[in-house]
């Protein structure tokens, strides 16, 4: 116990040392002028930009626009993904017929579908939601299908022997048994839908965090861009670890 406690405190100390030395190195680099000063701004400027961001009503409006787009895309892409995953995982024939397409389409760069989504859903939030939903669909469908195949067959036979209806099978047997895969799918789906929505916002949008990042870029407001990226990364990592903890999953590891 004592050795473990010592190890934990040494790890904490090392983490603090790494953070402190990184910040010091950054500040020294910013002050040295070795790189363009605007590209590596002082930490004080970034902290000031963070404070400014926190007090900026526009930031919250854009944050909520992105949050709504991600939430709706997760709901649409996630629910379609779960339905397709249940279908493919529940039927061997359907799984073998259509799962390879989803498996190989899954890792393709979804952002190239953005022009198509603009044609279909316009330049407003619809096309961003569609991008997030497409991104989210693939991991959720694949993980649900794989999870379905791993359900203990005894549970399914018990459900059938009680003559459970399809709805009862889904709600009483499949969903409880699929808790871990579903949460894992949700975690991965969330990550990729955030990327889909934010990238779409950087390409063509007039609101959202992606739009704000591009605004900082076009105005060459580097501290503002660093502050925004810090906020976006922190939020994405926080939600990810929250979903992982909810499902008792391991820390994200692809």
């Amino acid at each position: 116990m004592a050795a473990e406690g010592l190890m934990i405190s040494r790890v904490a100390l090392l983490r603090l040392a790494i953070i402190a030395s990184t910040l010091l190195f950054w500040e020294a680099l910013a002050e040295s002028g070795l790189l363009f000063r605007d590209v590596v701004p002082s930490l004080f400027k970034i902290a000031h930009a963070l404070g400014h961001l926190g007090a900026n009503a526009d930031f919250y409006a854009n944050l909520s626009a992105t949050a709504v787009e991600v939430g709706v895309s997760l709901a649409i892409g996630g629910s379609v993904g779960v339905a397709v995953g249940l279908l493919l995982g529940g039927s061997r024939l359907m799984g073998r017929a259509f799962e390879p397409y989803i498996h190989y389409l899954g890792p393709t760069p979804k952002i190239i579908f953005f022009p198509v989504m603009i044609m279909w859903f316009g330049i407003g939030p619809g096309s961003k939601i569609a991008m997030g939903a497409i991104s989210c669909f693939f991991p959720v469908a694949l993980i649900t299908a794989a999870g379905m195949r791993q359900i203990d067959q005894v549970l399914i036979r018990v459900g059938r022997s009680f003559r459970a209806s399809t709805w009862q099978m889904v709600t009483k047997i499949y969903f409880p048994a699929l808790r871990h895969p579903l949460l894992n799918g949700l975690r991965l789906g969330f990550g990729v839908s955030v990327i889909g929505v934010l990238l779409a916002e950087t390409k063509l949008s007039n609101r959202g965090l992606g739009f704000m990042v591009m605004q900082s870029y076009s105005q060459f407001d580097m501290p503002g861009m660093y502050a925004l990226l810090l906020v976006v990364f922190s939020l994405a990592i926080m939600v990810n670890s929250l979903v992982s903890q909810l499902g008792g999953l391991e820390v994200p590891n692809h």
């Binding site: 990327i195 934010l198 990226l229 990592i237 994200p252």
Partner: peptide
């Protein structure tokens, strides 16, 4: 944690 972060957003 970095693996879960939207690193592609660093492109600007």
């Amino acid at each position: 944690g970095l693996a879960a972060a939207p690193l592609v957003l660093l492109y600007p």
